[in-house]
């Protein structure tokens, strides 16, 4: 019944069997907190984000942090080597993680990361795409949908303009990027289900 945490936001998937569930959770939380803070700092730098209401800033971050982290840490999933690098720096093979209990979410994360990395986006393009991921007017609990929608449209226009300028002969890249948004939603839902299972256990 040895437990493992197969999320790469941990330093390692191995869990000390002497620790209580609460202690394990605290340690996990301690691992991902700096990454979450970085997402908040990133959001603050999106032009117009700070002009949204405090409620909507929090709602967007609550709903979108996981998706932003998936984009930012896509490079942790090495499709060629079939490994995942955890925050502690150690790599684990897909087979090892499967033996530890990882399931469909791991496969889906690999698929997503591979497709995203294959687009060969620059840092600036990736950053703007990440802003588009975060500022989505259809997240639950948004008070001022019009304001979020206006910012979302501005960001999407900026992304299209940047991609068109940088990849004049690859017009499909922008479409492919927008199609990543529902993929991220799907990963977010799968991840929430895994968290529920973890909390229940």
């Amino acid at each position: 019944n040895r437990m493992h945490l197969v999320c790469p936001m941990n330093t390692s998937p191995h869990v000390d069997p002497q620790k209580s569930g609460h202690e394990v959770w605290e340690e996990f939380s301690h691992s991902f907190t700096p990454a979450v803070r970085e997402v908040v700092e990133f959001a603050k730098k999106i032009p117009g984000f700070r002009d949204l209401s405090q409620h909507d800033q929090v709602s967007l971050l609550k709903a979108g942090t996981f998706e932003v982290l998936v984009v930012r840490f896509a490079s942790l999933f090495d499709v060629k080597d079939r490994t995942v690098t955890f925050l502690g720096g150690k790599k684990y093979s897909i087979d090892t993680l499967r033996a530890m209990g990882a399931g469909d979410l791991l496969n889906s994360m690999f698929d997503f990361s591979e497709k995203l990395m294959n687009l060969g986006l620059s840092e600036e393009e990736m950053s703007l795409f990440t802003a588009v991921v975060l500022v989505s007017a259809d997240r639950s609990g948004i008070e001022n949908v019009n304001s979020v929608e206006a910012l979302q449209e501005t960001l999407i226009r900026a992304l299209r303009s940047l991609i068109t300028k940088n990849h004049p002969n690859e017009s499909a890249i922008f479409t492919k990027l927008l199609l990543k948004l529902p993929d991220l939603r799907s990963l977010n839902n799968m991840h929430s289900e895994q968290l529920l299972a973890f909390k229940v256990h």
């Binding site: 939380s29 803070r37 609550k62």
Partner: peptide, 27 residues
């Protein structure tokens, strides 16, 4: 599991990280 962010303690981390900036705005 309607609010995974709250269950994770994410909301608390987010609010604290945003707070300095939001207080700045209120000033």
């Amino acid at each position: 599991f309607s609010d995974p962010a709250s269950n994770l303690g994410l909301e608390d981390i987010i609010r604290k990280a945003l707070m300095g900036n939001l207080e700045e705005r209120q000033d």
